[in-house]
Design a binder for these strands. Structure first.
Length: 171
DNA sequence: TCTCCGATTCACT
DNA sequence: GTGAATCGGAGAA
């Protein structure tokens, strides 16, 4: 069954591990369809989280994270790679889940390249979207946690939070 | 305007 | 293990 807005209308620390094992379905412009299972996610939790882009407040860039749960947040990193995120919690609470890896594509930059996801998907909703969808096929992976990656600049306290979630059977 | 730097990846030593 | 590629957001001036 398809994930709806209610799925994302929860705390990001609940949604992020729950997304591991779910299926991303991508329909390309030539009608080719690609299905991949999410194997790794990370949680970015609001203004208090120094590693979260929204911690400095609402700006044109972070505005998306304040929107409806299920909104897609895309941004460019290092001038080369698009990062795929899904907004959590109700409006005006800036939380998001980063999709860090899917089955067959290990790394957030690689998976967006494989799925041909770019800036044009920013600020769209994952619910009722004809190009990209999320499904639950009732697969329930065993989850293991780890610190987040690439955020040393946020300071030790935040860099060490165990807010990365991965499928144990694939680690 | 100008400067700094990042939720990464890959090639090379 | 180190460094380059590459660009837009955010903050300073």
């Amino acid at each position: 069954m398809m994930l709806d807005k209610d799925f994302f209308d929860r705390d990001v620390l609940i949604v992020a591990p729950d997304l591991v094992g779910k299926i991303i379905v991508r329909k390309f412009d030539n009608d080719r369809i690609m299905r991949v299972r999410i194997t790794q996610t990370e949680a970015y939790r609001g203004v208090e989280d120094k590693a979260c882009h929204a911690h400095k407040g609402r700006t044109p860039r972070t505005d998306v994270m304040y929107k409806q749960p299920g909104t897609i947040y895309i941004y460019l990193i290092y001038g080369m790679y698009w990062m795929l995120n899904f907004v959590c919690e109700r409006e005006n609470i800036p939380q998001a889940v980063l999709i860090r890896a899917v089955e067959g594509f290990n790394g957030p930059g690689k998976l967006t390249k494989a799925l041909q996801i770019d800036k044009s998907y920013n600020n769209q909703s994952i619910c009722n979207n004809s190009k990209i969808m999320l499904f639950d096929d009732l697969y329930q992976p065993e989850i293991i946690v780890a610190p987040r990656v690439g955020i040393d600049y946020a300071g030790k306290e935040w860099a060490e939070k165990p807010w990365r979630f991965m499928d144990k059977s694939l680690s």
